[in-house]
C-alpha cells in the first residue's frame, strides 16, 4: 500500500466537505483495503465513515430506509427486511461469507469494483484500471464476463448480489453531494454500462457520499426467490444470478420483477420478460416461454456461450421457485 493519511469523518453534511479528490471514504474496507494492497487504489487520505454515516434501518410511510453504513449481515437478518423484503435478505445471504457480510456496508457493497481477473493484474492492459490501454478480457479469458450491455472497451460484470435485489425492488439511492445537498438517484440509473468510459462504474457524482437506500413498499413477499449459480456451492461470485419476484392474484400474475447478476456491467433488469409475464398464468409453460425472451437481448463472448443456456434455465427455475417459496 502507498502511505496515506487516516482521519475520522466529521459526520453529517460536513463529511463531504472533508473529501478531496485524491481521498477515499472507507466503510467496511473489504473491497478498498484489498484494492489498496494491490496498488489498484492509491488514495492519499482515508476518511473513516464507519462511525458517522447512519447504520439504522427504519420503516417509512412508503417503504423502508436502510442507512448506508448498515452492515450486510444486519440488513439480511433485520425482522422488517425479512418480513417486507425477503428477496433482499436472500440475495445478501447468497453473497460473500459471514465474516465479510459482518464488515461490508450497504453503501460499500454498491460501490464494490468488478472481479474481472485482468482488472486485478496490473501487468496486463485494462481500460477500467488504466483507461486507453485496452481490454484484456475481450480477447482473453472471458468465461466470467458479460453477455449483455457490454462494449468493446470493457466486458466486465458487476459482482454484487445485494444490488441485483435492489434493482429488482426499484430502490432509490440517497446521496449527499459535494455541495452538501441531498439527492436521490433511482437504482436503475445508479450503475452504468461501460460504453467508452469503463473506468466509471456508476453515476455517483465525484466526492459524493451515499447516506441511505430506500425501497418502496411492494407485494412480492410471498413469491420471490434468489438463485445464484457459481463454480462452488458457497463463497464464490455468481456466474449467473436471478432475482425473481411475483405478485399473484390467485394464479394470475399481477406484476413481475426479474433481474440478473453476472450478466452485465450493472445489475440487469429483464423488462421484456416482466411485461410478458404480466396478466399471464403462473405456470411452468408460461415461465418456460418467458425465459426464452432473454435470448433476443444477449450477445455472448467466445468463452461464455454457456451463459446463454444457463441464464434461460436459471430464470425458469427461479420463477418456478417463487411458487414454492
Amino acid at each position: 500500500m502507498k502511505p496515506f493519511n487516516f482521519i475520522k469523518a466529521a459526520g453529517g453534511t460536513q463529511t463531504v466537505k472533508q473529501k478531496k479528490r485524491t481521498g477515499r471514504f472507507i466503510a467496511g474496507g473489504t473491497n478498498l483495503v484489498d484494492l489498496m494492497k494491490k496498488h489498484i487504489e492509491q488514495p492519499e487520505e482515508l476518511i473513516d465513515i464507519s462511525g458517522s454515516v447512519p447504520a439504522s434501518i427504519g420503516k417509512k410511510a412508503a417503504g423502508i430506509r436502510i442507512g448506508a453504513m448498515a452492515r450486510n449481515s444486519v440488513v439480511a437478518t433485520n425482522p422488517d427486511i425479512i418480513a417486507a423484503y425477503p428477496l433482499l435478505s436472500k440475495a445478501i445471504l447468497a453473497g460473500a461469507s459471514p465474516q465479510i457480510r459482518n464488515m461490508a456496508s450497504t453503501g460499500g457493497n454498491m460501490l464494490q469494483r468488478t472481479r474481472c481477473p485482468y482488472f486485478y493484474d496490473p501487468t496486463l492492459p485494462c481500460n477500467k484500471r488504466n483507461p486507453g490501454t485496452g481490454c484484456s478480457a475481450l480477447t482473453g479469458d472471458n468465461r466470467m464476463s458479460a453477455i449483455v450491455g457490454w462494449s468493446e472497451n470493457c466486458v466486465a460484470v458487476h459482482p454484487s448480489d445485494m444490488c441485483v435485489a435492489l434493482a429488482a425492488l426499484d430502490a432509490n439511492v440517497i446521496i449527499t453531494g459535494k455541495d452538501q445537498l441531498t439527492k436521490t438517484i433511482p437504482f436503475k440509473n445508479f450503475h452504468r454500462l461501460p460504453g467508452n468510459t469503463p473506468e466509471q462504474d456508476n453515476n455517483l457524482p465525484a466526492d459524493a457520499l451515499i447516506t441511505a437506500v430506500e425501497i418502496p413498499g411492494n407485494a412480492f413477499q410471498k413469491n420471490c426467490f434468489y438463485l445464484k449459480l457459481r463454480d462452488r456451492d458457497s463463497y464464490a461470485f455468481a456466474l449467473i444470478s436471478v432475482a425473481a419476484a411475483l405478485h399473484l392474484n390467485g394464479t394470475t400474475i399481477v406484476s413481475a420483477r426479474l433481474a440478473s447478476g453476472g450478466v452485465a456491467h450493472k445489475p440487469w433488469r429483464w423488462y421484456s420478460v416482466e411485461q410478458f409475464l404480466e396478466g399471464k398464468q403462473a405456470n411452468a409453460q408460461v415461465f418456460q416461454q418467458a425465459a426464452t425472451l432473454v435470448q433476443k437481448e444477449i450477445k455472448t463472448l467466445p468463452h461464455n456461450v454457456y451463459k446463454a443456456t444457463m441464464l434461460q434455465g436459471a430464470i425458469e427455475v427461479a420463477l418456478q421457485n417463487c411458487l414454492n417459496a
Binding site: I26, G29, L46, D48, Q99
Partner: peptide, 11 residues
C-alpha cells in the same frame, strides 16, 4: 466474526 486482514488497525 470479521477478517483481520481486511480491517485497518486504525479503525
Amino acid at each position: 466474526r470479521v477478517l483481520s486482514c481486511l480491517t485497518l488497525a486504525a479503525m
